[in-house]
Amino acid sequence: MKIKLKVWRQKNASDKGNFKTYDLDDISEDMSFLEMFDILNEDLVKKNEDPIHFDHDCREGICGMCSMYINGHPHGPKQTTTCQLHMRSFKDGDTITVEPWRAKSFPVVKDLVVDRSSFDRVMQSGGYVSVNTGGVPDANEIPIPKKIADEAFDAATCIGCGACVAACKNASAMLFVSAKVSQLAMLPQGQVERKSRAENMVAQMDEEGFGACTNTGACSAECPKGISLENIARMNREYLGAKASSDNL
């Protein structure tokens, strides 16, 4: 296949950045999208040009590190991660535009690499159950209905890639934050800190400068793991409940 790539190039955080166009011949449709970038980069290095920097690691759709905004969609045309996108999803002669995630809370580091440490800080504000190692009850001491465990699992499959933020016109992180709040709110282990968790994580989310949610649902539609909008509804309920209750500790 022949492909024309329009890629965002930005030397560093303070550089203004611009699009650059590259023509690629001889792309196999069995290649993954990132392997196409590998080939382009090999070529650039041979020509003494700086290769295009992008984040990636596991290349099997689970680590959440890859993050390309392709033709107006985070991770491209399919509901999957960039690393699991293959060239057979494109046509010979296509022009493909590739940008980094665009969000105030994800500043560009270089080319297609962004800084998502805001997600880590949101998690640090309450995305856990406060138990120390050791001294916990036997794993089967508290039965959990299968339906609840399965739903908690669905929320827990979030890979923290940030596609939800990139997809949202307001760069809201509601889907990411609500997935964790939901998982722990549903499980018995998460009950003790349920209220403070919802409050603290939402507060940190706002502090990081993520935008507001207007329920357009773009986040869930673009999420490579199909995290459901129900989580956002649940988090709103959790948050309101926490704010409204007098035993808010």
Partner: peptide
């Protein structure tokens, strides 16, 4: 390990009776 992970909220697969 299993006890620890369950206490952290790791959603392991469960049977209909609610046990692991």
């Amino acid at each position: 390990i299993i006890d620890q992970c369950v206490a952290q909220g790791v959603p392991f697969a469960r049977e209909y009776g609610g046990l692991l």
